[in-house]
Amino acid sequence: MKLTGSYTVPGPRERAYALLQDPAVLAQCMPGCEGLDRIGENEYAMRMKMTLASISGRFEGKVRISDANPPESFRLMVEGSGKIGFVKGDGLLTLSPAHGGTSVRFEGDVQVGGTIANVGQRLVETTARMLIKRFFDKLAAAASVLRATESAAD
């Protein structure tokens, strides 16, 4: 399943880029993420509890950042598996200056397997989009908070 979209994050490109490389920020923004533990260069073990309406499931997996080209682009790979299925997302994130901050465009491929793929077809794409949107909403919030603390410090 191909997914594309773009979101605006407050603040300059360098800062948006740095936020996106920060495991603490990623952990905070990824829906249901309960923690990222560094296991290698730009690679983290992930624990996640996904809750969506009545559906809930625990996932364990990995987050990896590659092809870093600061502050323009990088690849983000997220994979997780649990009892209800498995998810693998691989996307290119491209950052460009935009009105009101930085535009982050993603172009990715999401693969879903197991029960969620077998019985959730009606909703898989809608859900994936929603989760990505939640991620960027939180990222934007994190960027705003950061900007607010910076201005307070100024």
Binding site: V112, G113, G114, T115, A117, N118, V119, Q121, R122
Partner: peptide, 8 residues
């Protein structure tokens, strides 16, 4: 993955 895995 069988995407039509149920009667839904």
């Amino acid at each position: 993955q069988l995407l039509t895995g149920e009667l839904t």
